[in-house]
């Protein structure tokens, strides 16, 4: 049975309340496509029946499964390659000079999904700043709303379809080993990355000061107030000369004027407005 307007509204409200993700009026198809398999798993006929179950009794675990199912996990290694090129060519060499005394780097992949972005950051360091990656105190934190995808990220295991997407063959050979029909990230990559569940729209745990933040293709799902709250927190956990990457199609000027945009080739990143002009970039 097609989803009625009130049932769609119910699910839309549920997803918003638990994750601050805003589903547009044209997302009914997406919701049905994604929740259909979940309805089957839950042993009910369709998404409408799933709504009835949700309405009948409070079931936090089922609510979480609904929200996690609606979380977009589209990702690939070196997704939209340009930010990684800018990191390699400009940002990392500058940062490494600046941090030569403290010998520490903190990097955050804030919508990590199954970990391809965090692993790509680790591989970028291992390929182009090997001494730093192996000798400094480097931590790449990957966080995601979904405990399911965080568990997958922690496993460091990827399917053939996943390693086919975006990962150059020499990198596959260097940073992965075969594990049956899957590929396992190398111990060097695993040492650099760690993962944790985190809801960007809820209260944040105590976060370190990051040198680099990747928060790409997630802000578009939040409304203006949520974005504004997120940027206030970002401002507090990005080091004064740190850099922030958001998705190429996302703009934060509307949400916060605390950052300035730096064009870098065909991509861009953000940094604190107050930093000296001789800073990175």
């Amino acid at each position: 049975m097609p989803l009625s307007a009130p049932d769609y509204q119910f699910l839309k409200n549920l997803v918003y309340k638990d994750s601050a993700i805003v589903l547009g009026d044209d997302h009914a198809y997406l919701l049905e496509a994604r929740l259909g398999p979940l309805a089957q798993l839950e042993g009910v006929a369709d998404v409408t029946a799933l709504v009835r179950v949700l309405q009948k009794a409070a079931d936090p675990a089922l609510r979480r499964r609904v929200v996690e199912t609606m979380t977009t996990n589209e990702t690939s290694f070196f997704r939209d390659i340009q930010p990684f090129e800018v990191l390699k060519n400009t940002i990392l060499p500058e940062l490494v000079k600046k941090r030569a005394t403290e010998r520490s780097l903190r990097i955050w992949s804030g919508a990590a999904s199954t970990g391809q972005e965090a692993c790509s950051l680790a591989m970028t360091l291992l390929e182009h700043q090997r001494d730093v990656a192996l000798g400094w105190d480097v931590q790449i934190l990957g966080t995601d709303l979904s405990s399911r995808v965080v568990e997958r990220a922690k496993s460091g295991l990827y399917s053939q379809l996943e390693v086919n997407r975006g990962l150059p063959a020499p990198m596959l050979m260097k940073h992965f080993t075969r594990s049956g029909v899957q590929w396992q990230t190398s111990s060097a990559v695993q040492r650099l990355v760690q993962y944790r569940v985190m809801n960007l729209a809820a209260a944040w745990p105590l976060m370190p000061q990051f040198d680099i933040i990747f928060l790409r293709n997630v802000l578009i799902y939040f409304d203006m107030d949520t974005r504004r709250a997120i940027f206030t927190r970002l401002r507090n956990c990005l080091r004064k000369d740190g850099v922030l990457f958001i998705g190429g199609a996302e703009s934060i000027r509307e949400a916060d004027d605390a950052f300035e945009c730096v064009r870098a080739g065909s991509t861009h990143y953000y940094r604190h407005k107050t930093q000296p002009t001789a800073g990175i970039g």
Binding site: T72, E74, S76, D80, N164, R165, I220, A249
Partner: peptide, 23 residues
Amino acid sequence: DRAALRGKLEMIGLIAPTEIQDN
């Protein structure tokens, strides 16, 4: 899949990178 082949063509410089859109 299509994305994988496309990605390889990007890597070897035959087509320009495009951003993958969610959904």
